[in-house]
């Protein structure tokens, strides 16, 4: 591909070529969208510094300074609980993320193309089901009269399971549901990465006497590892903003202490309690933690891989 930026004339000064201008123009709508939907809303942070009430123009709203931030840290129990829940559930998701690689490798080893495609399609479908439907399905399976408890009762068990209302297993249960919903979809990128591995490597390994497992371990796994690391780093930096829908639909008083994540806490403070400035302040705090995580991960990535993400 021709270079988009070509150096002409004065050494050290770069001039943008025609291709560069074209590409820039092509990207303009997306940049505009990003500014409109990602940067412009940041203006809303200003509400954290005012005693905002709906309908009253900001110019007529009393300035509150850092009062709402102070309130956040004066009674930090809920905030800390939400932060712990967010981090715990997302770390569990990250811990379980290699399952997608295992699934992709297993799928890659299947000889029957028809069966492989069927499994791939079937496992990808849950990704497109809304969280509301996932909750309904889960309720149909795990409620007192759900499939699981009915089966248990028919098998003579007097013990009923209630993962939807059991606080002790909330984190694990939510991680399990996330895996069920996203496994097939996450595996797609790894299947693509495996497809990109030079086939001659497998041939050479076979000549060297490697069995199937050895070939996977020494060729496939190293082949998909860079992809895994990039996705891992991205998911860590984005972990505080993930899956509000999931935790919202599964929220109930029995598991509230373990499922209330930062986004839910923002929703509760803003919409339920009506304290919009406080909710905005919590949202800003969340962004700060996300940025710290991003730079930390970037630092680690730089140290380990010698490459910076940003």
């Amino acid at each position: 591909m021709a270079s988009n930026i070509t150096a002409r004339g004065n050494p050290g000064r770069k001039k943008i070529g025609k291709d560069g201008v074209l590409l820039f123009l092509l990207s303009t709508p997306f940049i505009a969208c990003m500014i409109a939907f990602n940067y412009f809303p940041v203006y809303g942070w200003v509400y954290a510094f005012f005693d905002y009430k709906p309908g009253i123009p900001l110019a007529q709203t009393p300035f509150a300074g850092f009062a709402h931030f102070k309130a956040m840290f004066d009674a930090p129990d809920d905030l800390i609980n939400a932060l712990v829940n967010t981090l715990a559930m997302n770390f569990l998701n990250i811990l379980l993320s290699p399952l997608a690689i295992v699934f992709a490798i297993m799928l890659n080893e299947v000889r029957s193309t028809k069966y492989k495609k069927f499994v791939q399609t079937f496992s990808t479908l849950p990704n497109f089901i809304s969280w509301v439907l996932v909750f309904s399905l889960t309720f149909a399976f795990f409620s007192t009269e759900g499939l699981v408890n009915t089966l248990l009762a028919k098998l003579g068990s007097s013990h009923a399971v209630d993962p939807i209302g059991n606080e002790r297993i909330t984190w694990l249960f939510q991680a399990g549901i996330t895996v069920w919903k996203t496994l097939g979809w996450s595996a797609i990128i790894y299947i693509a990465a495996i497809a990109g591995i030079d086939g001659e490597l497998y041939g050479a390994a076979k000549v060297d006497g490697a069995n199937r497992f050895r070939a996977i371990w020494h060729i496939t796994v190293p082949g998909v590892l860079p992809t895994f690391l990039v996705l891992l780093l991205l998911s860590i930096s984005n972990m505080l903003s993930s899956s509000f829908d999931q935790y919202f639909v599964f929220y109930n008083p029995l598991v509230a202490g373990k499922i209330e994540v930062l986004d839910y806490y923002v929703y509760r403070s803003g919409i339920k309690v009506g304290d919009y400035p406080f909710a905005t302040a919590v949202g800003m705090f969340k962004t700060l933690v996300s940025v710290i995580l991003l730079f930390s991960v970037n630092f680690v990535s730089k140290k380990i891989r010698g490459q910076s993400m940003i």
Binding site: K53, P54, G55, I56, I271, G274, Y276
Partner: peptide
């Protein structure tokens, strides 16, 4: 609450009293 906060209001609203003050103060 979201309708009142966002100003995206229909022609007529049935309002619970606990939101009346918000609607009134915000004109």
């Amino acid at each position: 609450k979201v309708m009142l906060a966002g100003g995206d209001l229909p022609d007529i609203m049935i309002l619970p009293p606990d939101q009346a003050k918000v609607a009134l103060d915000g004109k």
